[in-house]
């Protein structure tokens, strides 16, 4: 990390990069703060940890045409960058990717819920987090499901922070496969229980690097895809269509779920998409920056057995 910081400082000083986007500790230890700087002296402040919550690619749009920006990205976030590159939204040469060894990302809201007290300190100990030096919480339980079904990326980083990837155990989508076995009414019951909490605050949309539309479908009056209101049907309509828009683009980074103040398990849906695409099409979103977007190509032999 120190080597990297040195390098970043040099790059800033020599003007090879315009700025650095990363995380610095905040007053809430469970949630590091996003921080951008063009000042070489600030580089030392950056930190890399489980408590880096959002996906930094989302912020790249704010730095459009600014010049080359360096940013810290986990593998899933690098994939998100790849998607944006293949969609022509970001040019690879405009970013300086700092590869981050991944340990997963904690959902601060979930952690708060688990702890049910003001959090003053956090400390990672093996597979647990020690909160306020008192309460021990399993990391697994405060991370979105997506962190357990992480997919690899064809590495294309400009610099890499040393360290071992310590992602949580790879579950091969077992939760998805188990969920598939439920009856429709059981499934609906689950979604009713978890999604009824949705207040349509759209935090999930705001943090999503893929949601860069100027006018979201959900805000459109003509066509009126989803009606306003907090009925479960309209909530589900929103999430279904949003997820459809994620198909082949979402890299399952889990940022949406971490952003959800209601702790709705959104990554169950995104993981399901990842699972289906991998299983039935061998497709992993954002595997590299040259892969065609999933819905923008086809093969004659594509899965078609669901069509009579």
């Amino acid at each position: 990390m120190e080597k990297v910081k040195e390098e970043l400082k040099r790059l800033l000083q020599e003007g090879e990069i315009k700025g650095v986007l990363g995380f610095v500790p905040s007053s809430s230890p469970q949630k590091n703060r996003v921080f951008y700087t063009e000042n070489p002296d600030d580089v030392s402040r950056f930190t890399v940890s489980l408590f880096n919550t959002p996906n930094l690619t989302t912020y790249l749009f704010r730095f459009k045409d600014k010049g080359k920006i360096a940013l810290f990205l986990r593998p899933c976030e690098q994939r998100a960058l790849n998607v944006l590159i293949s969609e022509g939204k970001i040019k690879r040469e405009d970013v300086f990717v700092i590869g981050v060894p991944c340990q997963g990302a904690v959902d601060p809201f979930r952690l708060e819920e688990q702890v049910d007290a003001e959090i003053n300190s956090v400390e990672v100990k093996d597979d647990k987090i020690l909160v306020n030096n008192a309460i021990s919480v399993y990391i697994k339980e405060v991370m979105p499901y997506s962190c357990r079904v992480c997919e690899d990326v064809e590495e294309d980083v400009d610099i890499k922070i040393d360290g071992e990837d310590k992602r949580p155990s790879h579950e091969e989508y077992s939760k998805i496969e188990d969920f598939d076995k439920k009856t429709p009414s059981e499934k609906w019951a689950f979604f009713k229980e978890t999604f009824e909490r949705c207040t349509r605050c759209y935090a999930c949309r705001e943090v999503c690097p893929m949601c860069y539309c100027e006018q979201c479908f959900v805000d459109s009056y003509d066509p009126l895809w989803v009606e306003p209101g907090l009925s479960l049907q309209d909530i589900m309509s929103y999430h279904l269509i949003k997820m459809y828009h994620m198909a082949g683009r979402c890299t399952n980074c889990g940022a949406c779920e971490r952003a959800c103040p209601e702790n709705i398990p959104l990554s169950l849906l995104t993981s399901m998409l990842a699972h289906r695409l991998k299983r039935d099409f061998g497709y992993i979103s954002g595997k590299n920056g040259t892969q065609k977007v999933f819905l923008g190509e086809y093969h004659y032999e594509d899965k078609g057995d669901f069509i009579k």
């Binding site: 969609e87 022509g88 939204k89 860069y212 539309c213 100027e214 006018q215 065609k292 977007v293 819905l295 923008g296 190509e297």
Partner: peptide, 12 residues
């Protein structure tokens, strides 16, 4: 105004 230039339409 709405177009985001993602190019999906061009692909299909």
């Amino acid at each position: 105004k709405k177009c985001i230039g993602c190019g999906l339409c061009e692909d299909v």
